[in-house]
Design a protein around this nucleic acid. Structure first.
Lengths: 292, 292
DNA sequence: GGACATTTGTCCGTATGTATT
DNA sequence: CAATACATACGGACAAATGTC
């Protein structure tokens, strides 16, 4: 389908390299099609204007699907895209920024550079949710209503896939809050750090969607939590209780004891929720910025 | 903070309109800051290059937060942004496309047009998830593992907020599959339509995150489901069972009977899951295109 | 409905930055 | 270090959309 005389090296599958007659006709046809789609979509409603940029974005996405490109596969360069779609450089560049913002492609400069299907990670979709929920602020109660439901299921699902290394990694994280904090700053840092514990087995859960849903909860809690410590001395109750619970949890998970795992997490989530409510913990109204 | 002599009409809150000395100095400072940030971020690691577009995007997002702009508030026009950030038109336009792809702004042409904080709806974040999960394909089992957990909670949470109108709307949807289908196409259309039923009370659930999570499940099922109907005659079992269950459900919800509601949904989700597995229903690997 | 003004959308030519060879 | 092949950035001309008079 791609007909520009691209000289892309590795992965570009150009079915037709020298295109000849028919190719040229198809090229013209495609070109006219895009030019015309510029004006109106085939939507039943009042026919919304469609930008060239949008048309190109959709076309490239379709192309990725049809050729089932995988991460790190290379797309044609700007030059080739310009020729193929018959649009200007600016339009192509805008389209690239959109695809990049959607987490579909990445660009690299220099020779051998260009556009590649993006290495997929959760950062982009996590931030996307962050953008939406900035305008629909969530409460701790909302987050914990979901944690109570999802965390036990997550842990239970992950159990069969946990190995000794995971347990070790979790323990290594726990070391960062294995001692009482000396000041508020450290106290808060420990609180945030203790959430990383749950991310260890997020990676191991076979249900990617469940993983993602939980991960978003964790990300919000880590990035947006604010605690008003009214009493001048922060207490050590939360840390100890969390630490002890996680120890028991690790034991249960290592023993592949699904029921105990579920129960431990479930009760701890309830405890955490109550603690957060009691200490008036809230979620900041900020755009979510996922730490790399 | 915004210093360009914008003539935006309504909502633009320009703290300083005629800026004077200090304003000018701050302006120069901001300008130089951006130009320099172009090269490297302050990241501890090998110092990744940061595009101007990215810098502008972040700056505008920060600005939106600091001035707590709300949907439909107007942003400065291209001209003003170009002057303020000291970058070219192309850069600004790329930034706009990114912000638009993130669902934060919308643009309109013509007089009174410009950039506005976007009217928030779930389409953008839903599609964002779609982009990610295109590369991490989900199974029916994944989706139903979550439906079993979330749908009962969703319905239970929504009960206090349901009114007669909602019940009526749900019933109106049910009319579309109140009769046996005549052919496969209609059978499938009814199946898809029956999911809209659950979207009625998605709107009413006070936990926006729970709503969103469920909504994504529904969207995937509606847009991506493929059913292999091996037997030449499709059966009416699924439709009847679903229809009857939804009738009972409406009754329980109207009666504010939380326990019955939970039980009805829970068992029906289990049934649906088994039915889908039995009929080898799968999720297409396509980019999710949310119907407007 | 027609002329006009305003604002985004598209295009192009050129120059610069960056990484590979 | 030079040449090369890419993306990135700039600025200004023109087109298209849309509200107002």
């Amino acid at each position: 389908m791609w007909v520009g005389k691209s000289r892309a090296r590795r992965v570009m599958q150009l079915p037709i390299e020298s295109i000849g007659w028919l190719g040229f006709l198809l090229f013209i046809h495609e070109l006219l099609r895009i030019k015309s789609m510029t004006k109106y979509t085939e939507s039943p409603k009042p026919a919304l204007a469609m930008r060239r940029t949008t048309v190109v974005v959709d076309a490239i996405k379709t192309w990725i699907v049809e050729n089932s490109l995988a991460p790190n596969d290379r797309l044609p360069g700007e030059k080739a895209l310009i020729e193929h779609y018959g649009v200007s450089k600016g339009t192509i560049r805008e389209a690239m920024r959109v695809l990049e913002a959607q987490g579909i492609i990445q660009t690299k400069t220099g020779p051998g550079g260009g556009c590649f299907v993006a290495e997929q990670n959760m950062n982009v979709p996590l931030e996307a949710l962050g953008h939406y929920f900035y305008f629909h602020p969530l409460t701790m109660a909302d987050v914990y209503q979901l944690r109570k439901l999802l965390e036990p299921e997550l842990a239970a699902s992950a159990i069969p896939y946990l190995d000794a290394e995971d347990i070790e990694q979790a323990k290594s994280i726990m070391r960062d809050y294995s001692f009482p904090a000396q000041n508020r700053k450290e106290w808060f840092k420990q609180l945030v750090r203790s959430i990383d514990f749950y991310d260890v087995y997020v990676e191991k859960c076979p249900n990617v969607l469940l993983s993602f849903y939980c991960r978003y909860l964790h990300t919000m809690l880590k990035e947006l939590t604010t605690v008003q410590l009214q009493q001048s001395d922060f207490d050590d109750h939360l840390r100890r209780k969390g630490f002890d619970n996680q120890l028991l949890l690790l034991e249960a998970m290592r023993a592949k004891d699904v029921e105990t795992t579920r129960r431990l997490i479930s009760t701890h989530m309830t405890f955490l929720h109550q603690y957060m409510e009691k200490h008036a913990a809230t979620l900041d109204n900020q755009f979510l910025q996922v730490a790399k």
